[in-house]
Simulated assay, not measured.
Amino acid sequence: MKSFTLLLIVAVAAAAVSQVSAQWLPLLADVTPYPPITLQTSAKFQVRTHDDAAKAFEDCREDNYVPDDIYEKFLNYEFPAHRRTSCFVKCFVEKMGLFSESRGFDEKAMIKQFTVKTPKDLDTVQHGLEKCIDHNEAESDVCTFANRVFSCWLPINRHVVRKVLADLAGEAKILENCLKKVSSPERIVSDLQKLERYPEWTSEEVPCLMRCLASEKGWFDIVKNKWQGKRLTDDIGADVYNYCRFELMRKSRDGCSFAYRGLRCLKQAELHAGTSLSTLLHCARTLNATNVELLQYNQLKTEEPIPCLFQCFADAMGFYDTAGNWRLLNWQQAFGPSRMENQTQEQPLDYSECRRSDKERKEATSKCSWMYEEYKCWERLNGNDFGEESRETS
């Protein structure tokens, strides 16, 4: 799967508000494709915390006699079909101040609750509301009404809900348990000091700690030495997972190193993946691109399916300096680790051959044209040489 193409596929899913949507994360400081949006929210609504959610869960459980096995799923914001689910959901969103029997869902409260701390999640929250909110025109009973809307909106925003209502005490407990497993009473103080410098690590300074943390969160299977893709997508969003997909598939016999590299990549993705996706969506809307046209990039066609889409994206992401030279770091931050990267190789991939000469650029039909050619070269060097041109020459 190609880097720009996979972004496009996620973009199509986001535009259509599919069941696994993308997480919208902080934009790069120098890329601002959208103007700031001021939300008009009800002054009466108070943003709820994890403790509020926990109390709502307990109260609604008592009111609805939910079995233990089903309740465990509810606690993870998964609401399977069950005779108790609809009224439990209605009870929960009501106690969280998001729904009332007389007015239905309060869209402004939903936006405030799930974007007040993470405003870059506004797009996905709004997309879900646009798709799912109704005013019970079907005249369903109130439990069915509440569950229908929330169960439509939640799969698109489950990672946002989990993030906003995160159990910080639970996260601290996971860290405490893992330190007990991988450290010792003699090393615990120095290991904690090392952990404080985590952003500066160039290798894992507390061996196997990251594997334990990823395992405790349900993201990494230690026995199979494998990342759990579906759980990661649910928890952190499709765009973050896709950004690191090659790194998470690049297995190593050393499971601790494998898990450490994966978590480092996911942290990087938090900074850059949402920027790439939101910028691409902005360009697609500007050029009135259709979903069918977007998906044609999967074929690496000779001619760009949507003229100048890549130029719009590249300009916004700062892929070129004023002299037309590549800012390679910006390319790498936009697309994430490539298929061909090798953790043991001494020399990184050489992209110099992809830059067209000044003469070739001048002779090209347009700036959009030579930019698209350079993008296709990027894909080929990253092992994605199976598009239209490859089929013609095979």
Rank of each mutant, 00 (worst) to 15 (best):
F57Q: 06
F57T: 04
F57C: 06
E58Y: 15
E58W: 12
E58V: 15
E58L: 14
E58R: 15
D59I: 12
D59E: 15
D59A: 10
C60M: 15
R61C: 02
R61A: 01
R61T: 01
E62Q: 13
E62W: 06
E62I: 07
D63R: 07
D63L: 14
D63Y: 04
N64M: 06
N64E: 15
Y65Q: 08
Y65E: 08
Y65D: 13
Y65V: 05
Y65N: 06
V66C: 08
V66E: 08
V66D: 03
V66L: 02
V66G: 02
V66W: 01
P67K: 11
P67Y: 09
D68K: 10
D68H: 14
D69A: 10
D69L: 14
I70V: 15
I70G: 08
I70P: 07
I70K: 04
Y71H: 12
Y71D: 06
Y71G: 09
Y71M: 14
E72S: 14
E72K: 13
K73T: 14
K73G: 09
K73M: 10
K73F: 11
K73I: 10
F74W: 09
F74T: 00
F74N: 03
L75C: 11
L75F: 04
L75V: 03
L75Y: 03
N76Q: 14
N76S: 10
N76H: 12
N76D: 13
Y77V: 10
Y77K: 09
E78Q: 07
E78Y: 04
E78K: 04
E78P: 02
F79D: 00
F79V: 00
P80K: 08
P80F: 05
A81N: 13
A81M: 11
H82K: 01
H82A: 04
H82E: 04
R83Y: 02
R83Q: 03
R84I: 03
R84L: 02
R84G: 00
T85H: 07
T85D: 03
T85V: 00
T85G: 03
S86W: 00
S86Q: 03
S86T: 07
S86I: 00
C87G: 09
C87K: 02
C87D: 05
F88P: 01
F88W: 01
F88G: 06
F88V: 13
F88A: 05
V89C: 03
V89Y: 00
V89R: 00
V89E: 00
V89W: 00
C91N: 09
C91R: 01
C91S: 07
C91V: 01
F92H: 09
F92I: 10
F92R: 04
F92K: 03
V93K: 04
V93A: 05
V93W: 01
V93F: 07
V93S: 08
E94N: 05
E94A: 12
E94G: 06
E94K: 09
E94R: 02
K95W: 04
